[in-house]
């Protein structure tokens, strides 16, 4: 088990190292986030006060669209040169490979989110700094849910035609309960009315627990078959 966790960290480090070298996915993701933010500004012509009611919702829409670019690439990185075969043939257990890649995607997506948040606040004249730490907590929990399911689907669609089209169709519907919870908690936090968010938070945590265990258990079937 310890060997597995160590292997997971090696894989996470490898993914992060290659990504920071090229920054392809990071750049694309941040750019996409900015474009979506801009589009929202055109789409919604709300007054400052009314905007607070949808602040959490829009924030997570930005995150989930930009996040797709990061998460979808996860297993696709292993396809050139047949690296995936070498990883699976190694003594590393399949769940360790999966966990490592999830950790890497998690870190990358969190970075994109932290960059987008101030820009979001700026464009929409939103006061969010007062709620940063609780917001960061929600971001961490919900981003884990997005990445663990996204990386699992990335493994599923490695050999699928039209995988860029498939992933949103498969992934987004699954995320809806997670996003509903995250959006409501975020809106409440930004508005400063966070007295009773425990129930929504519980959904986010339940999502994380259920899908983390399910994905870790089923990943062997996906990778080795």
């Amino acid at each position: 088990m310890k060997q597995g966790l160590l292997a997971a960290l090696f894989i996470a480090r490898k993914d992060l190292r290659t990504e920071f070298r090229t920054k392809e996915a990071l750049n694309a993701s941040v750019s996409f986030a900015l474009v979506v933010l801009m589009l929202f500004s055109f789409a919604f012509d709300l007054g400052r006060e009314e905007f607070y009611d949808i602040s959490g919702g829009l924030l997570w829409l930005v995150y989930v669209f930009a996040g797709a670019l990061i998460v979808n690439r996860s297993f696709i990185r292993e396809v050139p040169n047949d690296c995936l075969d070498v990883l699976i043939a190694s003594p590393m257990p399949p769940w360790a490979l999966f966990l490592g890649k999830t950790i890497a995607s998690f870190v990358l997506l969190l970075i994109v989110e932290l960059i987008s948040l101030p820009v979001y606040g700026l464009f929409n004249n939103l006061q969010w700094v007062h709620a940063f730490w609780p917001l960061f907590g929600v971001m961490t929990l919900a981003t884990w849910g997005i990445t663990i399911t996204g990386v699992a689907f990335s493994a599923v669609t490695v050999n699928v035609r039209l995988r860029e089209l498939m992933l949103p169709v498969l992934h987004y519907p699954l995320l809806i309960p997670l996003l509903v919870g995250a959006m409501q908690v975020s809106t409440a936090l930004i508005k400063g009315e966070a007295s009773d968010i425990m129930q929504e938070l519980r959904i986010v945590i339940a999502f994380d627990l259920i899908f983390t265990s399910l994905a870790l258990y089923l990943i062997e079937f996906i990778l080795v078959g």
Partner: peptide, 21 residues
Amino acid sequence: DEKIRARIGYLGHGIGVYDDL
């Protein structure tokens, strides 16, 4: 078995190394 896999070396059609490392 994991210990057995550590004693096997595999060279398939693809080269199995990362371009960006």
